[in-house]
Amino acid sequence: MLAIDAAAYTSPWRRVHPAAKGLLFGGLLVCALALPTWPAAPLVAAVALAAAFGPARVSPRAFARAAWGPLLFILTGSLALLVTVGGAQGAVALDPEGPARAAEITGRAAAAVCCQLLFAFTTPLADLLPRLTRIGLPSALVEVVALIYRMLFVTLDSARRVQTAQAGRLGYVDRRAWVRSVGSLGAALFVRTFHRAQRMQRGLECRGYTGELTVLVDELPLRPAALIAAALPPLLVAAATAAYVFIGAGP
């Protein structure tokens, strides 16, 4: 129903412990953010894309579709970096340093988005969320987050069907109709979602619900080898960047 989510459940990396994937993705992300953008960002992007399209077998089309939104923001935002306001040249002028600055930030953010998508495309939330108690989050909160995750699909499904029905009665034919349709869609969803919660409550009571949503979380082995393998790419990127900077600063 949501492309990234659906892909995550069929990922060949699904059975890899989320901690290992987190280490790989987090490590690369830190490299992209903390190291000099040139050459760290292209290296990070190359490694993340190679991992995604190689062993993690993410569909390039799905990846591109998901990356489009954040890239659009990054590019629009970078337009602002090309100009300078209120300087010596007058009200608005092109900043001679602008292109370099925009390129740096665009490169860094694009690399970071690749890391984020690599994680999202390989880590189903049904496997991740129940484990959040292990990093110290209160179980009541984790239960609520997991419930939201389940219920959002049910709600999203009704939203799509209501929207199709509205479109059939020309509810999106012009902007006025559109406002009326989205408003009534929101109201219908609100009422429906809370009725659903009440029915779900009844359903859970039949199965002995007393306030705790305790469930069995599948064991996933956290193998040291996987952790080492996950730590390796970020370390290599860091080492390569350091070598480049060191050589560049050398004689």
């Binding site: 209501v162 199709t164 029905a165 509205q166 059939g168 009534s184 869609l185 109201a187």
Partner: peptide
């Protein structure tokens, strides 16, 4: 005009 199976998908007014 398409009419869905579940009437709740099509009733969105009060």
């Amino acid at each position: 005009q398409l009419v869905f199976q579940d009437p709740d998908d099509q009733l969105f007014s009060a």
